[in-house]
Structure formats: C-alpha cells, structure tokens
Design a protein around this nucleic acid. Sequence first.
DNA 1: AACGATCCCAACCGCTTGTTA
DNA 2: ATAACAAGCGGTTGGGATCGT
Length: 273
Amino acid sequence: MGRAPCCDKARVKRGPWSPEEDEQLRSYVRRHGIGGNWIALPQKAGLNRCGKSCRLRWLNYLRPDIKHGGYTEQEDQLILSLYSSIGSRWSIIASKLPGRTDNDVKNYWNTKLKKKAAAAAVVGATGGAFAAPATPPALSPASSSVTSSSGDARFAAYPPQPQAQQHQGLIRFDAPRSTELAPVPPVAQLGGAAWASSSAAAGGAVAALDDDVFLPDLVGGGAVEQLFPYGDFYAGLQDRALELSACYFPNMAEMWGAAASDAKPQGLCNTLT
DNA sequence: AACGATCCCAACCGCTTGTTA
DNA sequence: ATAACAAGCGGTTGGGATCGT
C-alpha cells in the first residue's frame, strides 16, 4: 500500500502558475512567512494548489534572491568540480552557488554543462587541454565547502560513482599528501565520463587523489572494487584510516555509527548533509 | 511560410529522510 | 518501537520556444 497523496489531485489546480497565483503566494509569504507548513499554506493563502506545488514554486521561482540563467565560467567550473566529487547531489551543489536552486542547477547540467563536459572529455582524450580545477574557485566564503556542517573545504576532480544509488553510504576521506597512492588506472577503465578524461588530461586525477578521496564504503563490502577504481589503495583501510586527515559521511547517523565501531579515523569528520 | 527536430525549463512524481505523537 | 505525516530531494516529463531545412 502506497502512501496517501499529499493533496487531492482532482481538486487542485496543476500546471503552469499564472501571474495572479504568483502574486498571491508572494504576498502571502511576504506577510506571514511560510509558517513551517506547506500543506496548510495554500488554503491560508487562498490558492487552489497543492502545498508541494506551492513550495516548489516559491523555492525555485518566486524567492527574491534567485538568479536565473547567466551562469558564469566560475560557476560552471564549480558545478563540474562538485559533480565530479559528489555526483548528482544537486541540493548540495546549489547551496554552494548563491542564488541558484537545485532544480536550476540540475536543469543547467542536463541541458548544457553535461554536453560541455562531454565535449571537453573528447578534447581531453585526444590530447586537448581541458583543465578541470583541482581546487575550484571559491565564489564566496559560503561556497567554499562541500559540507554543510563544519570542516575542511577542499575539493577534488575525482571519479564519481557510476550510479546515483552508489552514493548511498558514501564516505569521503581527505588523505594527507604524503599518502602513497596506487597507480591511477587508464582513463578508459574509469567509464569514459567527462571527469575522468578531463581530470586525467590535466594531470588532475593523480593530484586530486593525492588530496581527496570518496569511498563507497569504509570497510568490507566486495562491491568496493566495482564502484571505486582505487580499491587496492584502500585495502586494509582500518589501518590506513589513521593516516587520513579528515572524512565525510552522508549523514550524522552514519558518522556516529562509524565512530562507535572505531571505523571512523582520527581527525576531523563531517557530514555531507 | 510550414514543418519537424531540438533545446530549455517549470512542474510533477515518487522515493527518502526527519520529526512527532 | 513504530506509524503517520511533512519536507526534501533527484529523476523525469510536458510543452513552449527556437532553430534548421
């Protein structure tokens, strides 16, 4: 049995918002705020819309601080870099771009940046010089960190997980530069995605791994080799963990769980959410 | 001018996560 | 402990705009 719909679809308006509805929602939020309850908001605001739809309209379009279009080269580079580091975590990526929404960044990626990255990959694979930044430009102090909690603010052009599902259980370590690394596999083995050849073309893969590494899992789990091409490097990770300077967990629960089981390395740890 | 192809983005859908009773 | 609910999130889609022939 599925969950009940958030509202009666037969009785609420759907589809594009009219300017009148926009103004109704905008003026209501201006006067009362969102009140922490989107479900109740449409009725209070006199809108014949689903609360979920109101939330989306406000967050993605009506909020006063939103920028539309006109992405700068710096923003492009930051998105490319973050995507290569954390994959399609659009809300996290958008949070590093002031005035951008997750939906906007996602659309921008799907319609433009993905092609740009692919084109750059072709150039890179043929000896071109697309340079993925080992450390992307910091647009503002608020945009300097992958984490939403405290912590280290380094990025890396590193192989992302092939599938979104594989971000589940993602754990990232920032390895010290002295850490000895396994040889970086040829680009062809990394799945052919833009990040691989682009970072490799720029010599970025090695440098990046020297700095930051995500792991699909901290300990055990035979799938690591499938998901992560540098599995050898992390053989016996429990021992090596002490060499690592910082780590990132998908959420607090997993971080504390790792800490409780001694899987968490000494040093700074953060969550991605 | 007409038509089809492609691009772009707002909006929807459904799943996951967090909170509360 | 668990069920119900709301919010958050990422994937997908619909349809208008634009481009190419």
